[in-house]
Design a protein around this nucleic acid. Structure first.
Length: 152
DNA sequence: GCCAACGTTGGC
DNA sequence: GCCAACGTTGGC
């Protein structure tokens, strides 16, 4: 899962009560479908910081609530407001995410691109703009190893 | 700041 | 249903 640290950093997420927050504001159908179909309670997540120098994997999180309606879509005051979404027929979904551990050594995108084990991961491929997408267990474990959390 | 990638919108 | 125009993302 990708987030701009200026907007919502991993450290901020860790500081919240129960280190848990809803992952609202996803307004892309493919990303929504990945949350709806691919995220179960207990699933582990790599928390990635985009639009920062350097872009990097920052920490590990887990899903603590499966997909449910994103109420920011029907809040006219919200920057994520989408008038097509209603409580009766929500267009957008969110999940709840608990931050678990910061990576002792954040793993930069450049480092990931240099690791042959990660060459098939969507994150290192050109033009990937999805904020939520699945990665394999091999990729997940390799990022943890590179980040100094191999025993976690 | 540039620009490639790619999703969305809307006229036809 | 096509596709040009436009907007957004995000690395560089």
């Amino acid at each position: 899962m990708k987030s701009e640290p200026d907007v919502h950093s991993f450290e901020h997420h860790l500081s919240l009560p129960d280190a848990t927050d809803s992952w609202n504001g996803v307004r892309n159908y493919q990303a929504r479908n990945y949350m709806r179909d691919g995220m179960k309670c207990g699933d582990r997540v790599i928390f990635y910081h985009s639009n920062t120098e350097p872009p990097h994997a920052a920490g590990v999180a887990e899903i603590v609530r499966e997909a449910y309606p994103d109420h920011t879509a029907w809040d006219p005051e919200s920057e994520y407001h989408d008038p097509r979404s209603t409580p009766e027929k929500p267009s957008w979904l969110m999940v709840d995410v608990r931050a678990l551990r910061a990576l002792p050594m954040p793993v930069s995108l450049a480092t990931m691109k240099g690791n042959p084990l990660l060459e098939d991961m969507p994150l290192v491929r050109r033009g990937n703009r999805l904020s939520v997408f699945p990665i394999s267990e091999v990729h997940y474990l390799e990022i943890l190893r590179m980040g100094g959390l191999e025993d976690f």
